[in-house]
Amino acid sequence: MPDTDHPRDDIDLDSQRLVSNGADDLERAAEAALRPRTLTEFVGQPIVREQLKLVLDAAKGRGASPDHVLLSGPPGLGKTTLAMIIAAELGVSLRVTSGPAIQHAGDLAAVLSSLDEGEVLFIDEIHRLARPAEELLYVAMEDFRVDVVVGKGAGASAIPLSLPRFTAVGATTRAGLLPAPLRDRFGFTGHLDFYDATDLERVVHRSAHLLGVELSPQAAQEIATRSRGTPRIANRLLRRVRDWAQVKGTGVLDLSAAQAALTVYEVDALGLDRLDRAVLTALCTRFGGGPVGLSTLAVTVGEEPETVETVAEPFLVREGLMGRTPRGRIATPATWQHLGLTPPQDNTTLFP
C-alpha cells in the first residue's frame, strides 16, 4: 500500500508556507497602504521635497522626462516611496528592480529594452550593481542606447539598440560606494536625513487615520520618540500598538497602551531593541567598555558582523551610546548610565 503519511506531511508543509506567505503579503500590503501617493502627502524631508518638486514641475512644463534622480540615506526614510511618487506625479509607470538582482549586463539590457517612453526605472541598492551592468547603465542613462554583443571572441560584434527616454531613480544606503562615473550621471541627488520627533508624530497620526484607529497625542509622541528617527519603524510600532490595544486593551491607542505594547516588543524609551541592548551590554559587561573589535563583539551577541555594523551600530553611534575608534568599539558614559551600570575605575577608553 502507498505510504499516505508523506503526502499528508507535504500538504501540511504547503499549507504552512501558504499561511506564512499570506502573513508576509498582508504585512507588506499594510505597509504599502500607508505610503503617501503625492509629494504633498509626503511628510518630512522639506529640502529634498522642494528640490524634487522643482525638478518634476519643470519637466512636466517642458513635456519631457526629468533628469535621472539619485536618493541616498539610511533605510526606512522614504527612498522607495519617493520613487513611486515621482512616477505618480509624472503619470507614468514605475519599473522596479534592485542592484543584487542584476548580476549580468544582459539582465539590465533586458529590463532597459522593455521600457516604454517616459517610464521610471527604480533601482534599489544601486551601489550593489555588478560592474558589467554598471558600465552598461552609463551609456543607457547618457545616450539612451545599449550595445548588444552578438557572438564570442574575435567574431563578436556590438549592435547598438536605441532606448526610449526614461528616468532612472537610484536608491542607495551607502552613497560612498557608488563610483564617480555613475554618480555624475544623475542630474539630481537628494540625501534623506533621519526624522525629528515632530515629523514622526505627523507620520504616525496620518497612518493611524488610514488604519482607522483612534490614537491619542500622547501615544503618538511615545511611538515617535522610540522610532529611531525612521518612518518605517514608526509605522511598524504603530501597528504593534494597535494589535496590543485590540487584543489586551480597549481598542484605543492611548499612552498606557503604547507603553505596554512597546514593553512587550522590547523597545525601550530610547528606541533600543533587543539587539541594541545585547551589543551594549556585552560591550560593558564582557569587555569593560572596550575597545573591542567588531567581529569579537558580533560573536559575543550571536550575530553576523555585518548585522551589527549595519543594523545596530549607526543608531547607537548617532545617539552617543557607542564610539568607533581605530582600536575598536567603545562604550560612552551615556551607555553605562542607560544600562544602569557603573563604569570601571581604570577605564582607559576615549571616554573616561
Results as ranks from 00 to 15, higher is better:
3 D>P: 09
3 D>M: 08
6 H>P: 02
7 P>I: 13
9 D>T: 07
11 I>L: 14
12 D>N: 11
12 D>Y: 11
13 L>A: 14
23 A>R: 13
23 A>E: 15
24 D>L: 12
27 E>N: 15
35 R>Q: 15
36 P>T: 13
36 P>E: 09
37 R>N: 09
39 L>R: 04
39 L>V: 01
47 I>G: 05
51 Q>R: 13
51 Q>F: 00
52 L>T: 08
57 D>S: 11
62 R>W: 01
62 R>Y: 13
63 G>H: 04
64 A>E: 15
70 L>M: 07
72 S>F: 05
72 S>T: 14
78 G>I: 07
82 L>T: 02
83 A>C: 09
84 M>H: 12
92 V>S: 06
94 L>H: 05
101 A>R: 11
106 G>D: 14
109 A>H: 04
110 A>M: 05
112 L>V: 08
113 S>K: 08
114 S>E: 14
118 G>R: 09
118 G>S: 09
122 F>H: 08
130 A>W: 02
136 L>S: 01
139 V>L: 10
142 E>C: 04
144 F>I: 00
148 V>C: 01
150 V>E: 06
153 G>Y: 06
155 G>E: 04
162 S>Q: 10
163 L>E: 03
166 F>M: 13
167 T>Q: 05
169 V>T: 10
173 T>A: 13
174 R>C: 03
176 G>C: 00
177 L>E: 15
177 L>K: 12
179 P>S: 08
180 A>D: 15
182 L>P: 03
182 L>V: 11
183 R>T: 10
186 F>D: 12
188 F>T: 08
189 T>V: 13
196 D>N: 15
197 A>N: 02
200 L>Q: 04
209 H>R: 14
212 G>A: 05
212 G>Q: 08
214 E>C: 06
215 L>G: 03
219 A>H: 09
220 A>F: 01
221 Q>R: 15
222 E>Q: 07
223 I>R: 09
228 R>H: 00
230 T>A: 14
230 T>R: 04
231 P>Y: 04
231 P>G: 06
231 P>T: 04
233 I>C: 00
234 A>V: 07
237 L>Y: 04
238 L>D: 07
245 A>L: 10
249 G>K: 01
251 G>V: 08
253 L>F: 03
254 D>F: 10
257 A>C: 04
259 Q>V: 13
261 A>K: 01
262 L>I: 04
264 V>T: 13
267 V>G: 02
268 D>L: 06
271 G>M: 03
272 L>H: 10
273 D>V: 12
273 D>T: 13
275 L>R: 06
279 V>M: 06
290 G>C: 13
291 P>F: 09
293 G>I: 00
293 G>S: 10
294 L>E: 12
295 S>K: 12
297 L>N: 05
304 E>G: 07
304 E>C: 01
306 E>N: 12
307 T>R: 15
310 T>D: 09
321 L>V: 08
321 L>Y: 11
329 R>H: 14
335 T>N: 14
338 H>Q: 08
338 H>D: 01
339 L>S: 05
342 T>I: 13
342 T>H: 10
343 P>T: 12
345 Q>E: 12
345 Q>L: 13
352 P>S: 11
